[in-house]
Design a protein around this nucleic acid. Structure first.
Lengths: 147, 147
DNA sequence: CAATATATGTTCGACATCGAACTATATGGA
DNA sequence: TCCATATAGTTCGATGTCGAACATATATTG
């Protein structure tokens, strides 16, 4: 298998695993929250909030219009708080609320059993090795989005 | 980093890479074809056609209704041919047309330059190692979809 | 300082996706 | 055979995603 085919195959495997694992996690999300909405909440909590909608849209590589919708759903649920940006009247700042953090922690805890069920099945998979290579690949792709 | 966190991180990296690479490829798809539609065409050509819509929906882990839409778009473009199933009047069989195969080959060829641009950037990534582990993981997830 | 260009976020219309209800056909058991 | 149940695919309404047009605010430039 040549280099191009191998890389193509890697992207295909990634697509399939994303589909499978995404479905797996989505089924466990409380209140039918959409995975993309949960991903945003998780990002705010893990990497820090107080960012603008535009910065978040760029981080997730989605159009601004998509972010507007996501923020409106999470805001409607009281999981985030969108405040005016004191430094720029065009823009806003996004914060996770206490309710949002509690919701997030509960959801993550709810995923525990899935992981527990998975462990005995993936004994042969070198998760650490895969993670190491994918992190390198992700950084490169992230720094070269124009390709 | 414990085992659960590591596995969680792996899924997160996979999600991000899928988002980045998906956007990258989608931009190059001819005629604004949706990535999911192209993925189906590609599946038919790589893994063999003549399958039922239900089998395809199951393979991609999407609802039947989604497959109905995908087939109708690809059919409308003349890239696939959906015929009655002679063995079961409830069902149908899906085939790639010659036009579909030509379209697919052109699209894959069009991806070449993206790969070429990527190669020099990913010298430090062990694609083969990542691919090996992800293939194992994909097979396991595919065989345990109920988790 | 005024005019122009750029950046942020919303709105709108089109399309993909999804769960649920529905039709048509198959299958299995009385 | 007849009927209950199961399966394949479509339709429908709701929602997520997206590109384009828009309004507002900021930055730049003369």
């Amino acid at each position: 298998m040549d280099q191009a085919t191998q890389l193509f195959s890697l992207f295909r495997e990634i697509g399939i695993i994303q589909q499978l694992s995404g479905t797996m996690f989505a089924r466990r999300l409380p209140d039918g929250l959409h995975p993309s909405h949960f991903a945003l909440l998780s990002n705010l909590i893990r990497l820090g909030d107080g960012k603008t909608p535009q910065a978040l849209a760029s981080a997730f590589q989605v159009p601004k219009a998509t972010m507007t919708n996501t923020l409106s759903v999470l805001g409607g649920l009281g999981l985030i708080d969108v405040r005016p940006n004191p430094d720029d009247k065009r823009s806003k700042l996004v914060f996770a609320t206490d309710a949002g953090r509690a919701f997030h922690d509960d959801a993550v805890a709810g995923m525990g059993p899935v992981m527990a069920d998975l462990f005995p099945l993936i004994r042969d998979v070198d998760v650490e090795a895969a993670l190491t290579e994918l992190q390198k690949l992700r950084v490169i792709l992230d720094n070269n989005r124009d390709i």
